[in-house]
Amino acid sequence: MRMRVVRAVARTTFREFWRSPEAVFWTYGFPILMAVVLGFSFRPGPLPKVPVAVVDGPQAAAMVAALGHDDRLQVERLDAAAADRALARGRVAVLVRAEQPAVLRADPTRPDAELARLLVERTLRDAAQGPPPPLAVEAETRPGARYIDFLIPGLIGLNLLGAGMWGVGFQLVQMRTHHLLRRLAVTPMRRSEFVAGYLAGRLALVLPEALAITLFGTLLWDVPFRGGFLPWTCLVLVGSFAFAGLGCLLAARVRTIEAVAGLMNAAQLPMWVLGGTFFANERLEGVMHWAAEVMPLTHLNRALRDVMLEPGTLLDVAWPLAALAAFAAACFGLALRFFRWQ
């Protein structure tokens, strides 16, 4: 191997990188920015609480009192149906039924279930005078209540996010760097025609995509589909529309692939973490709660669960649909206003 050649290639590679300000920012600036944001979000403080539901019954009050001894447990008393629902939607980690012996119900595959079980066991043991009370553990295996049932609608949401943003934003920037947008701008094609056609072409792909994930979940794991097909279809389309709008907005002025990739990652990463795909985001606190609540993915995921895990109707998801549509309209409006054709 000739070191002279290796050195020359290395030097050129380094220079190419160093002379693209966008690449430098997204490599050095962005991670530091993320570290600062996350550092403030996760700075040392009280450990997050573990939510537990106690099912209504004659001895529920005593059980709530017993579990209340541990600060880490956030105990809620719910009737049987509401408790099941809270477990299915990930809003509580375990259910406790105050029977003889007490029964703890959880899906062991859920990330926070094991911690909740240990905390409940310890609290009951510490609260008891004498020998620890027996605690029966019941695994949640009913379709619609398991972690996989929670996960599948979330994965649909996450997929629409990726397809909408990357598919739309990335291609737009590529067309801009290839001077194709300029070429289109000097034809009698109207901007509205371009946007409508472009989106129709992209959105044609999302329904089959969401359908495939749903079918996969149903056939393989018996994931339920309890609501209507119409509200589900509306959610998939309007949700994609919202993400496409965001992608379009981020790509509205950007001139390089590196910059648009960085912007997309910056927008997507928080939604991956906090958007309610992998865990329920209802109980986040402070900035993270606020961040999760303004994310379109959060509302899409919740609404998709409403129509898949529960018999949600079009009326039940009317609000999230309207919010997503408004978000999409705002993004497209801004994008068209600032769009750079050349």
């Binding site: 290839h178 001077h179 194709l180 300029r182 070429r183 000097v186 034809t187 009698p188």
Partner: peptide, 12 residues
């Protein structure tokens, strides 16, 4: 735009 035809320097 309907009455002109344009060939730009480099279009992919």
């Amino acid at each position: 735009r309907a009455r002109i035809g344009v060939c730009l320097q480099e279009t992919k």
